[in-house]
Amino acid sequence: MTSPMTQPMTQPLLSVEHLTMRFGGLVAIDDVSFAATDKEITAIIGPNGAGKTTVFNCLTGFYKPSVGRLALTWDGREFLLEQMEGFVIAKTAKVARTFQNIRLFPKMTVLENLIVAQHNKLMRASGYSVRGLFGFGYQGKEAEAVEIARYWLEQINLVDRADDAAENLSYGDQRQLEIVRAMCIEPKLLCLDEPAAGLNPRETADLNKLLLFLRNEHKIGVLLIEHDMNVVMQISDHIVVLDYGRKISDGEPEAVRNDPAVIRAYLGEDEDEELPDIVKQDLAGDGADDGPETQA
């Protein structure tokens, strides 16, 4: 067990303390603590079933954690996520997320997907739709929202497809659209659940570029679950490794890469046949000659 290595000077954007999640007798997450700062990409990696998505689900209010404190701090305000309802987390704490299985609004157009994401802002502008019904002072706000959507579509080169149903986009475009849709709520923390899953190498490269752009230009904190080590190692500033619901490593990519606990987690289990080669190369590094060691 490594203790948290990063101890930033200032209050981190997100601080997870002693997070534990039980489903009946099953402990999906066991006393995990870590922190994530803004303007940084924090990756959470780990073998399948390590509890990564469960961490996200706790952060975004889909599950109520059994134990733990999830504090989000920005602009001097602190939000305790474990006490908030899912939609409130997105609405006031400004945590946005994407999903492992893309969850767009398939029958709605690309543009509508992005406008829906600006729901709360537009609700206020339209006087909770009452004033909007008669058309007072809402048009301008809606035009602004469209401009924001246009900006994001420009970033992912989908302006041409703005009026097509989201379900008609290619898989890679859907992934990117889901990310910029999350950006439309103007998040402080963006949680991405395996954004590179199912992408081809070119699409993966585009994704890397987009994520770096979000970090550098929009100054948000990004929390990333990913299996594709190409993505993780290239863009993360900080990596947290989970295995069987426990944190086994935490630190800069280089440190994590050489952490024996991490290598054991990835290669120690003999039945992990589907392990991507890239992981072996990246994680095992020189130690790869030893081959997978079997541990009882």
Partner: peptide
């Protein structure tokens, strides 16, 4: 907005919640 939110909820409630 409320009308679009209805349609969004119809299409995917979980995604809608994650958007606030």
């Amino acid at each position: 907005p409320v009308g679009r939110a209805w349609e969004a909820l119809r299409e995917d409630e979980i995604a809608s919640r994650s958007l606030g």
